[in-house]
Simulated assay, not measured.
Amino acid sequence: MFSPEYKLAIVAEYENAPNGEKGAVLRREGLYSSHVIEWARARDAGLLGGDETDTGGPARRPKRTAEEVELARLRRQNEKLQADLKKTRMALDIMGKAHALLEELSESVDDDLPPKAS
């Protein structure tokens, strides 16, 4: 259905897209992330032939070692955790400001109330 050259081009574009823009590549091409994952695995296993080299044979990307695969996974995980941490810190900052504002409003309401008659 898809040519090896197309698969390699899409995998490369997807992998090089910044976070948040990977979905745009998939939507534009009408693909699912499972396509890219499958194609990347095939590429890493050397099953996708691509452009022809000067010698006439297919260009092969060397297999990634287990350490390289793990390092890439850990880097992606680190990026995600960094983004989550940033969001959490911003949320805590907003909550702290909201708490301080509510406390200030509560104190001003208490000051404005007339004394209760007993």
Rank of each mutant, 00 (worst) to 15 (best):
G30D: 00
R28Q: 07
M1S: 15
V11I: 06
I37V: 11
L85V: 08
A9T: 12
R60G: 04
E79S: 08
L101M: 13
P4A: 12
P4K: 05
L102R: 13
F2E: 11
L71S: 14
T55A: 06
D44G: 03
E68H: 02
K63C: 12
D110R: 14
D110G: 09
D110I: 11
G56V: 06
A40D: 01
R64K: 15
R41I: 10
G57M: 00
M90K: 15
E104A: 07
R60N: 13
K22H: 01
R60Y: 14
P115V: 10
G57T: 14
D54S: 15
Y14P: 01
K63T: 11
D51W: 10
G56E: 09
E21D: 04
V69Q: 07
L113W: 12
L47T: 02
D110C: 05
D51K: 11
P62W: 06
E107L: 03
T65G: 08
D84N: 14
K97E: 13
E107S: 00
G96A: 10
D51F: 12
R27A: 04
Y14M: 00
Y6E: 03
E29V: 06
R28D: 07
A12T: 04
H99L: 12
D110S: 14
D54C: 13
T88C: 13
G57L: 12
D54W: 14
G46R: 02
P18T: 03
R76S: 04
I94K: 08
G23A: 05
I94W: 11
I37E: 07
A100N: 04
A72L: 01
M1V: 05
E68C: 02
L48P: 02
S3R: 06
R73E: 09
G20E: 01
A42K: 07
D54F: 15
L8Y: 03
L26P: 06
K86G: 00
A117N: 07
V69S: 03
P4D: 15
G20D: 10
R76L: 09
R73L: 03
N16G: 01
L102M: 14
A45G: 06
R28S: 09
G23W: 05
A9R: 02
K87F: 03
A24Y: 09
K86H: 11
K97W: 10
G30M: 00
S34P: 00
L47A: 10
P115F: 12
V69W: 06
P115A: 14
E107W: 05
R61N: 10
D54Y: 11
Y32K: 13
T55M: 00
A24G: 03
I94N: 12
I37F: 00
Q77S: 14
